[in-house]
């Protein structure tokens, strides 16, 4: 609320709208739609703020062969009713840091105006993202997600929490091995050993998904929830993960929902809900994001491949 008090007019508010914004993306809303809503709301709120006074124009009147008078008259062309609203959608640049699929929900970083440069940095810095992936046992679909056609049904009575944990631990170990292979260094070199001794490392390329940790946080047969920490992943990859899990458990499974709960240091607590996509909340949120980035300068430009640094 303190931020909104400082806004005296729309021009000042517009100038503060440079930076990163953390929103909560609802499922079944595409990123383009979300971007459009945020920017339309910003325009609406900015146009409702007190406007600058209308410009004046100089008019030279009277016959040209006599003494002419110079007058200052109102410039009708400057009226918002004539030249259109002061702020329109084209005044804003907007981009997302990392893509989030149509059916996924959760934390999403948007850059507005100068913040578009920051989203590029975040994308190249390859921040880890944490997901809650919901799945259901006993059914397989052709898209591996709830929207697909059912292709297989199977019994799942034999699946227990322990069995899931076992398979998941195995998956995590396999991914840890690829993590070292993806680092771009020779596996049997001293440099690789030094790097690996520091802990987890981020991959050299941005193509292959790398999973750092999988944990089963909820199991109530047939529904279960996994918590996955990963980089370079995409929604379809997480769906296939659930499918593979089903196969390894000797049954079938499909994904019922993907929710991103953290990206780097930006978590759910920070994310703005759909009803709060308004100017005052957006400005506050940008301030918070800015302070997070100032505290963690290595967030955007990491110096080492090690995740801990």
């Amino acid at each position: 609320m303190s931020a909104i008090k400082n806004i005296r007019n729309a021009a000042i508010a517009y100038k503060t709208l440079n930076g990163l914004l953390c929103v909560y993306k609802p499922a079944c809303v595409s990123l383009q739609q979300l971007q459009n809503t945020v920017i339309t709301n910003l325009c609406r709120d900015l146009n409702a703020l007190p406007d600058r006074p209308l410009e004046k124009r100089v008019e030279i009147q009277g016959p040209t062969n006599d003494a002419m008078t110079v007058k200052l008259v109102t410039n009708y062309a400057d009226d918002p009713l004539v030249c259109g609203p002061r702020y329109i959608k084209e005044d804003f640049r907007c981009s997302w840091a990392t893509h989030l699929g149509l059916f996924s929900s959760g934390v999403l970083l948007l850059g507005i105006n100068d913040g578009t440069k920051l989203t590029y940095l975040i994308n190249t810095a390859r921040l880890t993202r944490a997901y809650k992936v919901h799945g259901q046992l006993g059914k397989a679909t052709d898209t591996y997600f709830w929207n697909g056609k059912t292709v297989e049904k199977s019994s799942f009575g034999h699946v227990t929490r322990e069995k899931i944990d076992k398979v998941i631990a195995h998956m995590q170990a396999a991914h840890q091995k690829t993590m070292f292979e993806m680092s771009g260094l020779h596996m049997e070199s001293q440099t690789m050993f030094d790097l690996a001794s520091q802990g987890l490392i981020r991959p050299a390329s941005n193509k292959l998904p790398v999973i750092y940790g999988i944990k089963c946080v909820h199991f109530n047969s047939p529904n279960f929830t996994l918590e996955i920490q990963a980089t370079n992943e995409y929604d379809k990859y997480l769906w296939t993960l659930i499918h593979d899990l089903g196969v390894q458990l000797k049954t079938s499974a499909y994904c019922t929902g993907v929710q991103c709960i953290r990206q780097g240091k930006f978590d759910l607590k920070l994310a703005l809900l759909r009803k709060h996509w308004q100017l005052q909340y957006i400005i506050q949120n940008m301030d918070k994001c800015r302070s997070i980035m100032e505290e963690n300068s290595l967030l955007l430009k990491p110096k080492s491949a090690s995740l801990a640094l």
Binding site: Y76, A77, L81, V82, C83, G84, P85
Partner: peptide, 24 residues
């Protein structure tokens, strides 16, 4: 491309503006 360039010279447009017609 827009009426704004004409309005300072056109009385009709000014009258419409005084009626709060949204010319844009």
């Amino acid at each position: 491309f827009n009426l704004a360039s004409y309005i300072n010279n056109s009385e009709t447009l000014q009258n419409l503006l005084h009626l709060d017609v949204n010319l844009s």
